[in-house]
């Protein structure tokens, strides 16, 4: 019973990884760029939400902050990422890594090294007990938001012409170009959505984690593990991998707490041994 509680809690935690990992995966799949600066947008989302919340309160801040960061994402794509789509992957790794460090230091200069306080709005404090399970109200809210975002992204990718082009662009960018479709505006939108989701995760997690300059570096590791386990280019792969990572961590902490943080890397290792492309990774020609 207690174990089941950890499994359910792990699923909730997985939802949080998902917000960051899905954007990372999308940008990777379409542009072929591992965005090491993704965590920086997560951190900016958290800091921006606290600034906005001073004027508007919690509700609007978790909406406006991702929007503001998404707009920043347009500039990021237009002036930085765009130069590296066809370049050696090492270059884009370096430039996004540099940007991550730059952002962390900028945050340190603007907001200081000390963590900023943030609290959950009173309505969502405490937990509710369903049967024998204990749920944090706030995490349930979070789960609802993640589900809604997930549905939105899925519909966008599967049911719109925008999504068709993006999916085609992941598999055969040359064919898309041959059909006279320019991928660049699509890429801008994908980056915008991706970093916006990271910022949303930052805004929602500010009240329950530590808002400090290096918070982005912490999340990027887990997000990266999730993306690799899930497999490139696979929407559901990332979803399953997020939940799996959350659950595996919860179960490990139940039985062997000391191994809790290592468990996700062991999972990564096992998955890559058995399925080098990740759980649901598709064969993508440009990455082979």
């Amino acid at each position: 019973m207690f174990l089941l509680e950890q499994v359910v809690n792990g699923l909730v935690l997985g939802g949080y990884y998902l917000l960051v990992a899905l954007g990372l995966s999308l940008i990777f799949s379409v542009g072929g760029i591992v965005n090491l600066a993704h965590g920086a947008f997560y951190a900016l989302g958290a800091y921006a939400s606290l600034e906005i919340a001073k004027y508007t309160g919690f509700g609007p801040s978790v909406v406006l902050s991702p929007v503001a960061v998404a707009l920043l994402g347009i500039l990021f794509e237009r002036f930085i990422l765009r130069r590296f789509y066809t370049a050696d992957p090492v270059l884009s790794l370096l430039v996004t890594f540099g940007l991550a460090m730059l952002t962390e230091q900028l945050i340190r200069i603007i907001w200081g090294a000390s963590p900023l306080p943030a609290t959950i709005p009173p309505t969502f404090r405490g937990s509710i007990i369903v049967g024998d399970f204990l749920f944090s109200r706030y995490r349930l809210l979070l789960l609802g938001v993640v589900a809604a975002v997930l549905l939105g992204i899925w519909l966008l990718l599967q049911k719109t012409s925008f999504g068709r082009v993006v999916r085609a662009g992941i598999q055969r960018p040359d064919m898309v170009a041959a059909l006279g479709i320019k991928l660049q505006p699509y890429m801008t939108t994908v980056v915008m959505i991706g970093v916006g989701m990271a910022a949303m995760a930052g805004a929602f997690f500010a009240p329950i984690t530590i808002v400090q300059p290096a918070m982005g570096a912490e999340i990027i590791n887990v997000a990266f593990v999730v993306v690799v386990i899930g497999g490139l280019g696979s929407f559901w792969g990332v979803v399953i991998a997020s939940l799996l990572v959350g659950v595996v961590r919860g179960i490990t902490i139940h039985f062997a707490p000391a191994a809790g943080e290592a468990s996700i890397y062991v999972l990564l290792f096992l998955v890559l041994m058995l399925r080098p492309r990740g759980l649901l990774g598709e064969r993508i020609e440009k990455f082979e």
Binding site: E5, N9, L13, T209, I210, R249
Partner: peptide, 12 residues
């Protein structure tokens, strides 16, 4: 561990 950012399993 000093890098743990989610305490929920321990709280359970």
């Amino acid at each position: 561990a000093t890098d743990v950012t989610d305490f929920s399993p321990y709280l359970l």
